[in-house]
Write a protein that binds this DNA or RNA. Structure first.
Lengths: 201, 201
DNA sequence: ATGTCATTGCACACCGGTGTGCATCGGAAG
DNA sequence: CTTCCGATGCACACCGGTGTGCAATGACAT
């Protein structure tokens, strides 16, 4: 019902491929140019401009996708019935593949592409802070930092580990879950237990 | 015995001022140009090139200073007699002013200025890993990550907090110490105790 | 007083990335 | 078969930053 003609399909496929390689390429080299993106997508520079009039439009699309996916995961995981620390553990496990997929977020987060785009991540931060606050009120998380900061730091720990480790994914995600839980003030025992039980989820 | 003439002194003063503002400016905006640096130093662009033939020379100087100062602190603090976790707490307290001074390090660390400069930070990483390994062997730190990675992540946590918090320095450094100790697998009680006793040091 | 030399204030050439214009091709749509 | 239209391959202008060249200035050294 949405699209029909093989033409439109092929066009969307091209656009999708551009987005894919851009996410990958800008993740590794945030200052890559439109020419690099085009080459990686097996397309001519001019064609990229056909889909994205300006570089910023491309980046914004990436940011929107990332923020959307992460927000969806967070919303899905942060239900009032589950303890906050368990919700966080689940969050990290489901965030993990995205953390690699959206290495661009590292660049986005530090505002490398301007404020407009940086603010797209704002809603994620807000949701994160809410979860953290809930955990602090329940005594599950520490209060060595206010909720919003604790959320950002815990979140950045996950990305830092994703950026650092490139071994067995199963081992790495476990390390990320444990470490980020420790950041939030969860005890080592509880952190290990959560990381293990969330694996079988 | 080193330098005498007022001329040479004034020149060194100019050079020092350029370095100072460059550290500050590139810390906030890593992509600032030589023109920006010059303007901030109250000098003409051409003069900056007089002291630093290429932009990279300026950045390298900054990186060398930063690596040197941090290595000095680390060497000073990591003595075999003190428990590793206490050494870390002291390290964070003395690193804290530098973390603000050398916000450039954030950019350096992610290799934004090329590999050559990135490697200047290598010795710091190595010293960090040694300290962590000592702590792990003594049971003071966790083993959820290998020593080198744990060192980098703990270190990056400190910088992440420095980047995030800009309130009361005394409170912020305490939060940074506690949080980074938690990352290393130190218990919350011990972390708080270390953060407090290191304050009176 | 004379010379030295860091700094100045231009001038430039160069480069790489951006974004646009336009004629062209070729396959799908009608 | 003709029309449509996305992709191509050029062209180009523009911009901002880099690094250099050089004459002029003026403070300091001798």
């Amino acid at each position: 019902m949405a699209t029909q003609t093989a033409r439109e399909l092929a066009m969307e496929e091209t656009r999708a491929r551009i987005i894919d390689v851009a996410r990958e390429l800008l993740g590794q080299r945030p200052d890559a140019g439109m020419g690099d993106v085009a080459a990686a997508a097996g397309v001519v520079r001019r064609t990229v401009y056909g889909h994205f009039p300006a570089r910023n439009d491309l980046v914004r699309t990436l940011a929107e996708q990332a923020a959307g996916e992460i927000a969806a995961v967070l919303e899905d995981v942060d239900v009032a019935e589950t303890p906050a620390d368990e919700a966080w553990a689940r969050f990290v496990h489901r965030l993990w593949p995205l953390a690699h997929r959206y290495r661009v977020l590292l660049a986005l987060r530090r505002g490398e592409y301007g404020d407009e785009i940086h603010e797209l991540l704002g809603s994620v931060d807000a949701m994160l802070a809410t979860l953290i606050r809930r955990g602090q009120n329940a005594g599950a998380f520490g209060t060595h930092l206010p909720p919003d900061a604790l959320g950002r730091i815990g979140y950045s720990a996950v990305f830092a580990i994703a950026d650092d480790r490139h071994g067995d994914p199963a081992l790495d995600v476990r390390a990320a879950a444990i470490t980020s839980l420790l950041v939030l003030g969860v005890s080592a025992e509880r952190a290990h237990s959560l990381a293990d039980t969330s694996l079988s989820d």
